[in-house]
């Protein structure tokens, strides 16, 4: 039987994991939406995240961190628009392997472009003065800046949920995920919706990149640090499930924290182990819906 004081470190890790999980949501939701509607597994998602971070570093001296927080995701969404319109669109009906190869290639091109433009060394960037400091909750300490990240993530999730669940736009997107042919038969073209979904998805990835830039190294390969994790979240949560992705991100965060507490060397590996377990016991993911076209 553990004493209560012994449990405090573990509880801190669980709380911290939940908070960081919220951050993964921003990256994983976009990935999940693009896959659910377009059938494209966007391996370049991490690249958009990295571009978002680099744009923040470039723009912040001119328009401030707040300005960069808005401008950088918008700029990346526009890049997403161009890429969807001229590249991704050709692959929705093609063999999925081709889409994989395309986005794999895009990720490499983006990473190398960043390396050519900014160099391979991490680019210096710090938390804005106004957001520095910590919040203490008994034994638990959290940075004020991370609370801001948490707030932003919650706003994004809420906004996206309203968009998908409560608007006409969302209805078409959800219908398109379930049965694109029927949507087409009703005379609705999914093309502009797909463009919008890609813009929102990569814009969210860029926003996550901006948010991480002050607290983690900004370097060309930073996208690789999160892309595999984002996939794991999507797989665990279940395809097509909005809340599944949200729940999975929190579970992944907590798993990481608990592993760090008991067996730190497995901090990252624990997440993959969790994925294997979920796939064995529930191949559709925790909250995966039955989607006709994926069966």
């Amino acid at each position: 039987m553990l004493d209560v004081p012994d449990l405090i470190p573990l509880i801190s890790q669980i709380l911290n994991g939940l908070l960081f999980g919220a951050y993964y949501v921003m990256i994983a939701l976009g990935l999940s939406m693009i896959f659910s509607l377009g059938g494209i597994v966007n391996l370049a998602h991490g690249a958009f995240y990295a571009i978002g971070a680099y744009l923040a570093v470039t723009l912040a001296p001119h328009i401030g961190f707040g300005g960069a927080l808005i401008a950088s995701p918008l700029a990346v969404a526009l890049i997403g628009l161009v890429i969807e319109r001229y590249l991704l669109r050709r692959f929705y009906t093609a063999d999925p392997i081709l889409g994989l190869l395309l986005t794999f290639g895009l990720a490499m091109v983006a990473e190398q472009s960043l390396r050519i433009l900014y160099g391979a060394a991490p680019v210096p960037f710090s938390i804005p003065q106004a957001l520095r400091g910590q919040v203490f909750l008994g034994e638990f300490v959290y940075s004020r800046y991370r609370l801001m990240i948490l707030g932003t993530a919650v706003l994004c999730v809420a906004g996206l949920w309203v968009l998908l669940a409560k608007t006409a736009f969302g209805k078409v997107v959800r219908a398109g995920v379930q049965n694109p042919d029927m949507v087409g038969a009703l005379g609705i073209s999914l093309k502009p919706y797909m463009t919008a979904v890609v813009m929102i998805g990569v814009g969210l990835a860029a926003l996550a990149g901006v948010l991480i830039a002050p607290i983690a190294g900004v370097h060309p390969a930073m996208g690789q640090e999160i892309i595999t994790f984002a996939f794991v979240v999507v797989v665990i949560g279940g395809l097509g499930s909005f809340w599944g992705v949200v729940a999975a991100a929190c579970i992944v965060g907590v798993t990481r924290g608990v592993a760090a507490h008991f067996y730190p060397a497995a901090t990252e590996a624990s997440v993959y182990l969790l994925m294997v377990l979920v796939l064995l016991l529930r191949p559709r993911g925790l909250f995966g819906e039955r989607i006709q076209k994926f069966e």
Binding site: V41, D95, P96, M194, Q224, P283, R284
Partner: peptide, 26 residues
Amino acid sequence: MPLDTSLSRRTILKASAGAAALGTLG
């Protein structure tokens, strides 16, 4: 926008492996 029916959720698993491979190509 018809979708290829051969698409399966295995694709995303392969993709995860691909994502991991991104870091190892020289």
